[in-house]
């Protein structure tokens, strides 16, 4: 699994806002056009992104191995025709190029994921989305990061306990509803304790945020993001 790793790469030193901007610009550019020439240019940008965050291509592809299967299926499905000649390779070209551009978008995301700590993402959200909505969104995202491993452990415990009592030999509806009831009631019990703890610590609408600053390094990256975003108009 690809997650944040501390490092000293160029991508690690960038402001998270410019990295988010590049991802969005890249997605706009990739989804707008499907010509081989545009895809070649985007491949170069994706390669630079991976290099800047020091993510090896093999590792990124391994992380997205299930997605690769899916991306391979779309062209195959389109090439198969009902009736002679059964296989029409020409029909597979456009879906194949479409699959390739989705892969490029995923690779650029991999570079962001490895190079950005949660704290920075949260600060970027709170500084970009104004007001109370931004506060709740930033805090909520940080809480999801914190509680994901806790709830994964809860779900594992529940499944093991059910299996130990031969509950895994019951029908699928009973298994799923038991997991749902126990998982949700545990999550809500944790939420009620969390809400008490937040109030005890004066959870407020206006806390001081961690510092974020654009550096000189961010200027070309932001220019690239803007360029990618307007590229469909050229």
């Amino acid at each position: 699994m690809l997650t944040y790793e501390p490092d000293e790469t160029v991508a690690h030193r960038l402001d998270p806002r410019s990295k988010l901007a590049v991802q969005m610009g890249f997605a706009v550019a990739a989804l707008a056009r499907i010509s081989p020439r545009a895809l070649l240019a985007l491949s170069a940008v994706a390669a630079v992104a991976l290099l800047a965050a020091r993510v090896s291509l093999a590792r990124a592809l391994y992380a997205y191995r299930f997605a690769l299967v899916v991306l391979a299926i779309a062209p195959v499905v389109s090439a198969v025709t009902l009736g002679s000649p059964w296989i029409d390779p020409a029909a597979a070209v456009t879906p194949a190029l479409a699959s390739y551009r989705v892969l490029l978008i995923l690779l650029v995301s991999a570079a962001y994921v490895r190079s950005t700590p949660v704290r920075d993402s949260r600060a970027a959200i709170q500084r970009t989305v104004p007001g109370k909505a931004g506060q709740l969104l930033g805090t909520g995202v940080a809480l999801v990061f914190r509680f994901l491993p806790v709830l994964l452990a809860d779900v594992r415990t529940i499944r093991e306990a059910v299996a130990a009592r031969l509950g895994d030999e019951r029908g699928p509806v009973e298994r799923a509803s038991r997991l749902g009831v126990l998982g949700l009631s545990r999550a809500f019990a944790r939420a009620d304790r969390l809400s008490l703890a937040l109030q005890a610590r004066c959870f407020s609408w206006n806390p001081t945020l961690p510092a974020l600053a654009f550096s000189r390094l961010d200027a070309p990256v932001l220019a690239l993001a803007a360029g990618l975003a307007v590229s469909p108009l050229l």
Binding site: G140, F147, A187, A191, L198
Partner: peptide, 16 residues
């Protein structure tokens, strides 16, 4: 706070 905490935990459950 109560609703927000439940929403955040449900989002984490969605991830799990």
């Amino acid at each position: 706070v109560g609703l927000f905490a439940r929403a955040a935990l449900l989002a984490a459950l969605m991830g799990a």
